[in-house]
Simulated scan of single mutants.
Amino acid sequence: MPALPTLRQLSYLVELADRLNFREAAQAQHVTQSTLSAGIKELESVLGVQLVERDKRHVRLTAAGEEVVARARELLAAAQDLADIARRAGEPLGGPLRLGVIPTIAPFLLPSLLPPLRQAYPSLKLYLREDLTERLLEQVQGGKLDFALIALPYDTGDMWVRALFVDEFWFVAREDDPLARAEAVAVKAIDPDAVLLLEEGHCLREHAIEACGARGARSGSRVEATSLHTLIQMVEGGLGVTLLPEMTLKAGILKGTRLTARPFAAQAPFRTVALAARRTTPRRRDFELLADFIAAQARASARAGIPAHRRAQPRTR
């Protein structure tokens, strides 16, 4: 492999380009003038091209020197970014972190979670990706994501998974639905064939099927929705009823609709929100810190309760 310029040599050249004076450039770099001059000569030797024209009165860059300086500025800036990233990464929940979140969690949890997270960990640079559970876990295993915020039950294989909080399901229907008039709904009273589901691939679909029983729910749904907001529109259009996680109700998903949410009478079905990482992750400390933070925020949110929009009072537990 041929010899490459060093960052120090490039910094000498950029400093000289800014000042066009060897003495001033050397002072700015905290080296002697001879050291700076030797560094630039070494750079010219490595690159095999003259970068600087020198005489007793003037210093100027050659055409090649101008181009090298432009590239050098980019390289030095990138090197500084790299050093900053590494420095922040050494802090608790610092530096860049790539987090995957499933669509039935992201828009309902993140708006309330991210502001206090940024306040608690100001050096954290969070990059988010929303996708289905299967694809997120594949990206975590492949190293493209650090962690994934998912819902259980789901087969996570040998990944490191920590349960964060329970998210109960509520029954959602139009106001004129007979079950919507009850204070609380018995799971066995729901006709599985009337339950509208998300399309294949969404783990919430499997959670709803499990909650209502398998009596025709897996194949009997006449139409399927691509998102929870589409699901809401379908229920409002009279196509059926559905089950929604408590998280979505707290986020106001039913606001502006004519739908009613009712709790279940006993043994409410639920999903468990969890954080997943590959077992070999070097960010185990960050995993635990983020999990602790999300769990604490969930407890605070639970104390706040569900906005009283067209719903029955939740049970005392």
Results as ranks from 00 to 15, higher is better:
residue 110 L to H: 08
residue 110 L to Y: 01
residue 111 P to W: 02
residue 111 P to G: 08
residue 111 P to D: 06
residue 112 S to H: 10
residue 112 S to K: 08
residue 112 S to M: 08
residue 114 L to P: 15
residue 114 L to K: 07
residue 115 P to C: 09
residue 115 P to R: 10
residue 118 R to F: 08
residue 120 A to Q: 13
residue 122 P to K: 07
residue 123 S to P: 02
residue 124 L to W: 02
residue 125 K to F: 05
residue 126 L to Y: 01
residue 127 Y to M: 15
residue 127 Y to V: 15
residue 128 L to S: 05
residue 128 L to I: 09
residue 130 E to H: 07
residue 130 E to S: 11
residue 132 L to Y: 02
residue 133 T to V: 15
residue 133 T to C: 08
residue 133 T to Y: 01
residue 135 R to G: 12
residue 137 L to S: 03
residue 137 L to M: 12
residue 137 L to D: 00
residue 138 E to V: 13
residue 143 G to C: 06
residue 144 K to N: 10
residue 145 L to P: 05
residue 146 D to C: 06
residue 146 D to N: 10
residue 146 D to W: 03
residue 147 F to C: 04
residue 148 A to W: 00
residue 149 L to A: 05
residue 150 I to C: 06
residue 152 L to E: 01
residue 152 L to K: 03
residue 153 P to I: 11
residue 155 D to A: 13
residue 157 G to Y: 04
residue 159 M to G: 02
residue 161 V to K: 05
residue 164 L to E: 00
residue 165 F to L: 06
residue 167 D to E: 05
residue 168 E to K: 12
residue 168 E to Y: 10
residue 169 F to I: 02
residue 169 F to G: 01
residue 170 W to R: 11
residue 170 W to E: 01
residue 171 F to N: 01
residue 171 F to R: 04
residue 172 V to L: 04
residue 173 A to L: 04
residue 173 A to P: 04
residue 174 R to C: 04
residue 175 E to T: 08
residue 175 E to G: 14
residue 175 E to S: 15
residue 177 D to C: 03
residue 177 D to L: 03
residue 178 P to K: 05
residue 180 A to Q: 03
residue 181 R to E: 11
residue 182 A to V: 15
residue 183 E to K: 15
residue 183 E to V: 12
residue 184 A to L: 07
residue 185 V to L: 03
residue 186 A to N: 14
residue 187 V to A: 10
residue 187 V to S: 08
residue 188 K to M: 10
residue 188 K to V: 14
residue 190 I to L: 12
residue 191 D to E: 13
residue 191 D to W: 03
residue 192 P to C: 12
residue 192 P to E: 10
residue 193 D to R: 14
residue 195 V to R: 01
residue 197 L to I: 07
residue 197 L to F: 02
residue 198 L to P: 00
residue 198 L to I: 10
residue 200 E to C: 04
residue 200 E to W: 09
residue 201 G to A: 14
residue 201 G to H: 12
residue 201 G to Q: 14
residue 203 C to W: 03
residue 204 L to M: 10
residue 205 R to Q: 11
residue 206 E to P: 00
residue 206 E to L: 09
residue 207 H to W: 05
residue 208 A to F: 01
residue 213 G to F: 04
residue 213 G to I: 05
residue 214 A to S: 15
residue 215 R to H: 15
residue 216 G to D: 12
residue 217 A to R: 06
residue 218 R to V: 08
residue 219 S to K: 14
